[in-house]
Amino acid sequence: MENLTDEELMMQFLELGNQKAFEVLYHKYFVSLSKYIGWMSGSMEQGKEIAQHTFVKLLHKSYVFNAKKSFKVWLYVIGKNQWLNEKRKLDRFSDHEPSVVQEEGKEDGSRTFQLQKMQMVLSTLSALHRETFVLKYLDNLSIQEIAETMQCSKGTVKSRLFYAMKNMRSKMKEFKTEYNGKF
């Protein structure tokens, strides 16, 4: 089972009803999808919730999967749309704008500090630049996969990455000056 590609695993699930194949995909991508949504929304808890909904949707709509296309891209697109729908619903009822990644569990001072710094740096970017950076360096998607997920050209992805990192570098420098090396 481990030797099969994501697309082959999905076809095993679709054509042979192999539940194990779906479970392999679920365990492979659940955390990375949760974190992707978590970094985008500012709440890892929300990221986890959206990832759960995404996999339930995948179970019910698996018949629309096209084996010629990348499973990973398909999954991230569904996850992103799921989050955008949720965000629209929340925005309708409140003007809540999450800015800092919230994480459950133990409080570790320096780690929380680091986490807040990263989230603050990311929050200075536009949504498109932030998403491109997260997909490339935290979810390890290739330039081609990012282009497919974000429905734009490879050149646009590279340009967004370049400007995202340029802005982040200057923001990191500002932090160092502002907090006098605290971060």
Binding site: K35, M44, R111, L115, M118
Partner: peptide, 11 residues
């Protein structure tokens, strides 16, 4: 630095 922080988040 980002990768380290991301890896430290447990889900």
């Amino acid at each position: 630095e980002f990768k380290e922080v991301d890896a430290s988040i447990t889900i």
